[in-house]
Amino acid sequence: MVKSILSIALFGLSAGVVKAQDTLLVQGTTPALYISHVVKKGENFYSLSRAYGVPPKEIAAANKITMDHGLQLGHQLHIPLTNANFSQKADASGTPVYHKVSEKETLYRVSVNYNKVPLDNIRQWNSFQGDGLKKDSYIIVGYLKGGSGATVAAPAPAPAPRKEVVKNEPKEQTPPAEPVTPPATEAPRKEVKKEAEARPVTDTPETAPAPAPAPKPAAPVVASGDFEKLYDQQTSGGKKATTEKGPGTWFKSNAVGKYYALHNTAARGTIIKVTNPLNGKAIYAKVLDVIPQMKSNAGLIIKLSDGAMQALGTTDARFYCELSYDN
């Protein structure tokens, strides 16, 4: 009786503890597909079952251990991907599961390896046409459906860090907020003409014609330098930086010469260093708000202003990137 009560209590306490990795990567080949999970403090078979939508016994069987054996901290588990918790339908939703493209790999080969998922579904999920794939890029091959009462997604626990997320959830048009930067609003309007050459970025419609000729050539250098200095201050030269890897996308911005971002955990005003591992290019972007919780944003770790995306040298709707910031 006492053992049963303790099991129920432990199950309740650990149900909310499970947290998947930053990006869920599919492993294995049809029909034995799985994702990896590193056991963390407080996790057990039941909490993993709720998070990944797989019965506890199936998790134990997939890892050739018994329920009585328990889980070891730091141990890497195989979480089976079955029809119960993994969907590859065209209208699938949930947490995206990715495949890392190897050299000379084709879209057809990816389809065959992962349950012969229709090629059109892969193109739709990743917003691209044709069959060409880039080495080391990440593409969605299906979606992990949440367990009963739990949603598993590393990028998804966005609401927790900030209370104001609730106010911003319905708004996909968050970008209009990014042009409102402290330097522009604090400058006296009467002195705009005098400072036109020194301040290329302005939000005031009446004064727009005066600074128009100057901003484009000078702003990128100044803005990048300012944000890079702030990044060094916030991270103590990169020593206190938190790293994150995963897919990103972009939004249209009216800001000139400065790069902005939407991120789920970094506080507003945080400067994030964003690197494109495909070409080594990096930019520094200022966090304006969180990523709106919408189906189209599922699995994203960052949304960048269009100017930042261009500076990274990518034109893809979704692109893989590496982040570094103070958290």
Rank of each mutant, 00 (worst) to 15 (best):
E103T: 15
A51H: 00
A84S: 12
G94F: 04
V112A: 07
I79P: 08
N83I: 05
G74P: 07
L71S: 03
Q76M: 11
L48Q: 06
K89L: 09
Q72S: 13
P56Q: 12
D68A: 15
Q88C: 04
T66E: 07
R109Q: 13
H99Y: 11
P80F: 11
H78A: 15
T66D: 06
P80K: 10
H69A: 13
P80Q: 09
K100C: 05
K104A: 11
I59R: 01
T82V: 09
A90P: 06
V54W: 02
K64Y: 05
V97D: 01
V97F: 06
H78S: 15
T95I: 02
Q88T: 14
N113L: 13
A62L: 04
A61C: 00
S49L: 08
L77D: 00
I65M: 15
A62C: 09
T106R: 10
S87G: 07
A90S: 14
D91R: 04
S87R: 11
T106S: 15
L107M: 04
G53W: 03
Q76W: 02
T95C: 13
T95H: 06
K57Y: 02
A51V: 00
H75Y: 10
H78G: 06
N63P: 06
P56M: 14
T82F: 09
K100D: 01
Y52R: 01
H69Y: 07
V97A: 08
